[in-house]
Amino acid sequence: MTILIWIWSIILSISIILVLYRCIKGPSLPDRVIALDMFTTITTGLLVLIAHFLNNYILLDVSLVYSLLAFISVIAIARYLESSKRG
């Protein structure tokens, strides 16, 4: 069981590295925001996995609040982009 959780976590970490590559390279600002959005979604899954690994119920609440804050921040950035001109 422990070895499986290790394998899952490592694969998820690799996908986070792929996302960070896009976040650094991304040609425009919205590309980076997409990468950020995806980063938080993967991290939420990873947090729940870690909560199971450590058998810690509190981490579930942490992941809920984390995804809520990520959602609000992405909406705020999208609103800001919509009202501003490219430049």
């Binding site: 925001v33 959005d37 959602f71 999208a78 609103r79 982009l81 490219r86």
Partner: peptide, 15 residues
């Protein structure tokens, strides 16, 4: 909701 918002915003932004 967030991906729809991002798509519309970046279309208006001129991506």
């Amino acid at each position: 909701i967030s991906s729809h918002n991002l798509a519309r915003a970046s279309h208006k932004w001129g991506i």
